[in-house]
Amino acid sequence: MTQQISPMPERKLTRDEVIALKNKRTLVTVFQISWIMVFVCLAVVAIQIRGTSGPLPALNAIQVIVPLGATLALLGSVWTAWQSLKAIQADQRARFFVFWRYTLVLGGAFILVMLAVMAFNPYGDLLQYSQIFRVMVVYHALHALVIGAWMVQVYRNAAQGAYGSSDAWGVEAGAKLWYFVVIAWVLFYAVLYVF
């Protein structure tokens, strides 16, 4: 990026600000531990339904490769999000923009691909299982979209010159919540495609 506006001047955080930052970090961590339980709940329900609805239909190559590719893209976005967070914390703004864009593209691609997979639901013959499959994908996509919207906002804020090494919380929150989206999906992917 050609942004040359200097970010916030280097300064030491006050005690209140240190506590506030610590509070926000704790909040995000506890929230993640808490809210992942909804995904655990749906995963358990899916396993239960699969147990009662008989054998799943065999998936063809496309039905296996497409979600796998989307998942790999999502996993890649963890790395890019992490890189951009490190970049902003080191005040490397150009590097931040590059990796944040990658994250947005990979995440967006994942959401679109998975919504398409859901539209061509491979489990149409199994009533409850196809329904829980849809619910899980849509439920996950809702979280991905909301958090993704925040990440787009972070991008726009950054383009206006926001964030810097002493004030990276917005980026950090976006990245950490995106990790949450990834972990939630890995859980779902394991239940829906692996085990």
């Binding site: 655990v40 709940c41 009662t52 009533l127 409850q128 619910v135």
Partner: peptide, 30 residues
């Protein structure tokens, strides 16, 4: 924080059964 999300998950399915025609808890459809 650990238990209430389960209620959220269960209620989501119950509401879907009531308004969206899913059959998670409908024995007539399995």
């Amino acid at each position: 924080v650990m238990a209430t999300p389960f209620l959220a998950g269960g209620l989501t399915l119950l509401i879907l059964d009531r308004v969206a025609g899913t059959a998670f808890f409908n024995p007539a459809q399995g």
